[in-house]
């Protein structure tokens, strides 16, 4: 049933794919042009809706990977095995093809360039996407707020944005936690995120940093518990968990 959009409420917009980049063997960054896009904050997400010719419709949430830039919206999508939406977005969608996007949504898990507290970003796997938007927003704004990123991935080949994170970005420190295989010469054996990783890769609790944690539920739980045990204030720890629904 057609209904005029109510001002202030979000409605679906047609987005067209303009570019794609491979991040890993199974993840792609998709760049969309969304006419009339109202802009967004780093950390916000969008809902993407696909509708088949027979009317079957399904939607998923994806974090935005880059700060606001006109009508441009960048998502990085991990291809989930048997994921009907992620597979279509990473393999079935061609430049010029449309999808529907609603957003931006979520005003809590966000970083604003005017924020001055030091920032700790803790990423598990594809949870790095909204955190990368924050690091990019910092650079775009010329902010001098110090950032640290602790990024947990299975192996070096699973890193998103590897080349960009290798380039020096003064004020952004990056530490990797490899859980399955480490690069040659690494002194840390492979293993899950532990107290020492956030103790050495993060900020002392005395600095009262804003902590953003994003990843699978178990990872977020572990990271948040470690931060609490290191003395960080619960109100300074913001989390975004991926559910099991992915796809």
């Amino acid at each position: 049933m057609a209904r005029a959009a109510v001002p202030g409420r979000l409605s679906w917009r047609v987005a067209r794919l303009t570019d794609t980049r491979a991040e890993t063997a199974t993840a792609r960054t998709l760049v969309f042009d969304v006419p009339g896009w109202p802009g967004h904050l780093a950390g916000q997400h969008v809902d993407v809706r696909l509708t088949a010719d027979d009317g079957y419709s399904t939607q998923r949430s994806y974090s935005i990977a880059a700060p606001a830039d006109g009508d441009r919206v960048e998502l990085t999508v991990q291809d989930v095995p048997d994921g009907e939406v992620s597979s279509y977005l990473t393999e079935g969608l061609s430049v010029g093809d449309p999808v529907e996007i609603r957003g931006p949504v979520g005003g809590w898990f966000v970083w604003r360039p005017a924020d001055t507290a030091p920032v700790l970003l803790v990423a598990g796997g594809s949870g790095v996407v909204p955190l990368m938007a924050m690091a990019r927003a910092r650079r775009q704004a010329g902010s001098r707020t110090p950032f640290r990123l602790v990024y947990s991935v299975r192996t070096p080949a699973d890193r998103y944005y590897a080349a960009e994170l290798r380039r020096p970005d003064p004020g952004l420190d990056v530490a990797y936690v490899y859980t399955r295989a480490v690069p040659e010469g690494s002194s840390r054996p492979p293993g899950r995120l532990a107290v020492a990783d956030l103790n050495s890769g993060g900020w002392p609790a005395d600095f009262a940093p804003d902590c953003f944690v994003c990843g699978p539920t178990g990872f977020v739980e572990t990271a948040a518990d470690i931060l609490l045990s290191l003395g960080h204030d619960a109100r300074k720890i913001k989390t975004e968990r991926f559910g099991p629904t992915g796809g």
Binding site: L10, V105, G106, G107, W108, F109, G243
Partner: peptide, 24 residues
């Protein structure tokens, strides 16, 4: 029972109903 997301995930669905961001 441990498979859950944060309230952030409500932002999209509730944006259809409310004109403000309920998650904040």
């Amino acid at each position: 029972i441990d498979d859950y997301e944060d309230g952030n995930a409500l932002a999209g669905p509730l944006s259809e109903i409310f004109t403000f961001d309920v998650t904040t």
